[in-house]
Computed example of a mutant assay.
Amino acid sequence: MLRNTLISCVPVLLLTSTSFAAEPSDWELIRDATNRQRLIRITDEPHEMDDSTNKACRPFGFDANLIHDGYGQSAFCNVYVNEKGKRALIDGLNHYPQGSMIVKSKLRSKSDRDPELYTVMRKMGSTFDAQNRNWEYSVIDGRTRRILARGRIDSCISCHARYAETDYITRVYMKQDDGEPSVGPKPGLRNQMQ
């Protein structure tokens, strides 16, 4: 009888560990998104954000004046990707593999080193939010490393939906050799990877 009980518990344990692997804990998300040494930097220098993006990339209900108000100045960001999403981002593909993560570390000025905010997109499993390509969005405070918002964030979804051709990922921060935003791969970065 004990043997039958143990055998019947094994599938439950396997299912439980599988579901945890698909959705990282808050601690794992913070660790993976804020450790810039573990990510691949895409931007050569901080990218100046559009004012509309600057205001939209914040958690719902959060005081916009506390993030990137900049006293009339622009906000900037550095963009990073993890190993799983690197090829899709570089090549401008229309599908990212599950586990892909793209991080924007947002800066108050171009010369700042410490981000005041991280916005994160992580590609989840096929049942997470299929209607919106299964991206989980997160906003993490740069100073306290606390998650301010996480999940299916409507403001993030509505902004990124216009980039459906590239699986909801904007690539405006990727520059061609002539300095114009790239719609294809970034030549310099591609050469570094080969």
Rank of each mutant, 00 (worst) to 15 (best):
Y137P: 01
R133Q: 13
C77F: 12
V139I: 13
F76S: 03
A75P: 00
D129P: 08
Y118V: 09
T127P: 00
I140E: 13
A130W: 14
K86V: 06
Y71K: 02
Q73Y: 11
N78R: 10
D114P: 00
N78Q: 08
Y71I: 05
I140C: 12
R87E: 13
K104W: 15
E136T: 02
G99P: 03
R87A: 10
K123I: 06
L89D: 08
I90M: 10
C77S: 14
K84C: 03
K104T: 12
I90L: 15
S100K: 06
M124G: 07
C77K: 10
N132K: 09
R87D: 08
V81M: 09
Y71E: 05
N132S: 14
G125R: 13
C77Q: 12
A130G: 13
W135Y: 08
K123A: 05
S100P: 06
E83Y: 06
G85R: 02
I140N: 14
T119V: 08
S109R: 10
Y137V: 01
L107R: 00
R133Y: 14
D129E: 10
Y137Q: 06
K110D: 03
Y80A: 01
S105V: 02
G99N: 12
I140Y: 15
S74H: 06
D114S: 11
V79N: 04
Y137I: 01
P115R: 06
S111G: 02
G85Q: 06
D91C: 04
A130C: 11
S74R: 02
D112K: 00
N132H: 15
A75K: 02
V103I: 02
V103L: 04
P115W: 09
M121I: 05
N94L: 04
K104L: 15
I140S: 13
K123D: 03
Q98C: 05
D112H: 00
G85T: 01
D91R: 06
H95E: 13
T119A: 04
V79D: 05
G85E: 12
E136Y: 09
V81I: 14
V81E: 03
Y118H: 01
L117A: 09
V120F: 12
C77W: 09
N82L: 08
K104F: 15
Y96E: 08
G99R: 14
L117H: 10
G85L: 13
K110V: 07
E116G: 04
H95M: 14
Y137K: 03
S138V: 09
G72D: 02
V103H: 01
M121G: 11
G72I: 04
G125A: 15
Y80V: 07
S138F: 08
W135T: 07
S126G: 11
R122N: 09
G72R: 00
T119S: 09
I140T: 12
K106D: 04
N134C: 10
K104V: 02
G85D: 12
K110M: 08
L107D: 04
S126I: 03
V81W: 09
Y96C: 14
R133W: 10
L93N: 00
Q98V: 14
L89K: 03
R87P: 00
E83P: 00
